[in-house]
């Protein structure tokens, strides 16, 4: 069994990864609440943003911070374009259909990324945020400022978006739209503009999360794309509703996952943590039967 110092140390590593999961999770939940779309391509967009940032800074000599801005803008733009084309087209459909459509975007991006940045058995790419070089000690291990940024950004986004959705006019409009787009439009809310804001905002978050994850995990298109499944677990625990619950669920997942690492017997099963927790949460929290009313099927 690991010692108390061990547990403390793994708490820190767990919080840092959980922080970025939280950031991604919040982004996805916000968009879902505003447009009813579960943006499964979140990770893929972020991955491509990170690769673009790598290309610009490592190959084309751009300033690294500018390349991050490019990544974030890319995330925002491509999500906006997707939202503007496919949002209205699928507006009346089941959330399942809207989510499945984002899988289409995921596949396209996955293919494009591998074509543009292919692997040939050999060297690898890495994206380093300059804040990696600044560290401070917590006990026996050093924590980089990137970790702090990830966690802080997650927290900030959570608070800001929760407040935004609750207290501002635009935020209320977004919440209304998620319920029923047509009625909201009938009430005079500039639906398309609100939607655009939601899509762009989510895209910006995905770009930021992509860069952070590329630094904290790895700059690899496939793993970054499918990291969204872990983020999804946190969002599911919050039943795709509460941003605050998403944030804390992500942190809990990250910490439990990390804490299991030193227990050698089950260490390799620790990546099941998000799945197990999500399934339990879904079953326990959805004890009552849920029947979809209205439009069904693909």
């Amino acid at each position: 069994m690991p010692s108390t110092t061990d547990l403390e140390q793994f708490l820190i590593t767990g919080l840092s990864l959980g922080g970025v999961y939280a950031l991604s999770g919040v982004g996805m939940v916000v968009l879902y609440r505003a447009t009813g779309v579960l943006y499964l391509a979140f990770g893929a967009v972020g991955a491509m943003g990170a690769l673009i940032s790598w290309q610009l800074s490592h190959q084309d000599g751009w300033n690294i911070w500018l390349s991050f801005v490019a990544a974030i803008l890319f995330g925002g733009l491509i999500t906006l374009v997707y939202g503007m084309i496919f949002g209205p087209a699928l507006a009346g459909r089941d959330p399942l259909v809207k989510a499945t459509a984002t899988l289409g975007l995921l596949l396209i991006l996955l293919g494009v990324m591998d074509l543009l940045w292919p692997s040939s058995g050999g060297a690898s790419r890495a994206l380093t945020i300059p804040t990696d070089n600044n560290t401070f000690q917590v006990g026996q291990i050093s924590v980089t400022y990137t970790n702090v940024i990830a966690l802080a950004l997650g927290l900030l986004i959570t608070i800001v978006t929760a407040a935004f959705l609750r207290f501002t006019k635009l935020g209320t409009a977004m919440r209304a739209m998620a319920n029923d787009r047509e009625i909201t439009a009938a009430l005079g809310v500039p639906v398309r503009r609100v939607e655009a804001a939601a899509w762009f905002g989510c895209g910006v978050l995905s770009g930021a999360a992509g860069v952070l994850l590329a630094d904290l995990v790895a700059l690899d298109s496939t793993s970054l794309t499918f990291l969204v499944i872990f983020t999804l677990a946190a969002a599911l625990i919050a039943r795709l509703r509460s941003i605050v619950v998403t944030f804390f669920a992500a942190l809990v997942i990250g910490v439990i996952d990390a804490e299991i690492t030193p227990i050698n017997k089950i260490s390799n099963y620790r990546d099941m943590t998000p799945f197990v927790l999500a399934v339990i949460a879904l079953l326990v929290l959805n004890r009552r039967r849920v029947i979809t009313v209205g439009r069904q099927g693909v």
């Binding site: 089941d94 959330p95 599911l236 999500a278 879904l282 959805n286 849920v290 069904q296």
Partner: peptide
Amino acid sequence: MSGLYLALI
């Protein structure tokens, strides 16, 4: 579960 949750689970 309903459609989307079923897919996700």
